[in-house]
Design a protein around this nucleic acid. Structure first.
Lengths: 109, 109
DNA sequence: TTTCTATCCATAGACAGCCTATATATCTGC
DNA sequence: GCAGATATATAGGCTGTCTATGGATAGAAA
């Protein structure tokens, strides 16, 4: 049974944090942004996104406040915290290191 | 609680299959090969490796036979099958696509 | 010769993370 | 009035990796 995932497991938090560096967004907007930037390759399901946001809130990597959208709908806007920025840079460097390592194995050099 | 993984989840099968394209190996040898090629970045724990090999056997992507090593020890040598090669190429292209997509999101372009 | 280290295989149980399914509600366009 | 897009959220399940454990042999060191 091949992979069922719409993204690489372990990369969701990083993608969300990175998306928020471009400004505060509500959950739905985060999902759309990732989907669009990735040309529909990465799809963040609601059942993945909202639990992930709860985790990030708990860790203190993002904060949230209720506002209304441009179209007058209630939505919860998430903003990256200082700790979130630090965490993101950790995850980014770890990720790059891993990709480099995997690439070496795949090239068998 | 940051990541606990020694590799990117979802990449283990691919790494094993790729490693076997360079010839038959026993489990321990596969683990060493991945560890060495990745400069110790990727560590395949035994509790991940052997279950993974059982899965690959079940799927028919590798076959196994008991032999003795150069140092006269009994060991189970795994060999890539034709189906395994096909599977590997699928996983490789999917992986590359994902990395490309993630890179686009991380660069925010 | 005893002990330590490296080699070698394998399973059980725990846990994290993502998915499916479901629920609720509002706004827009037809 | 109804469909579809917008918007948040939880429960439950599944998969994959890790930790922990078990066993066994070879070779080196003490």
């Amino acid at each position: 049974m091949a992979r069922k995932t719409d993204l690489l497991p372990g990369t969701l938090d990083m993608l969300i944090l990175k998306t928020l560096t471009r400004g505060s967004l509500h959950g739905y907007g985060i999902a759309l942004s990732i989907k669009n930037l990735s040309d529909d390759i990465l799809t963040v399901e609601e059942g993945s996104l909202y639990p992930a946001l709860q985790r990030l809130l708990l860790q203190g990597w993002v904060k949230a406040e209720w506002k209304s959208t441009e179209t007058n709908r209630r939505a919860r806007y998430y903003t990256l915290t200082a700790a979130g920025r630090t965490q993101l840079s950790h995850e980014l460097s770890q990720f790059e290191q891993m990709i480099a390592a995997i690439t070496r194995v795949l090239q068998g050099a």
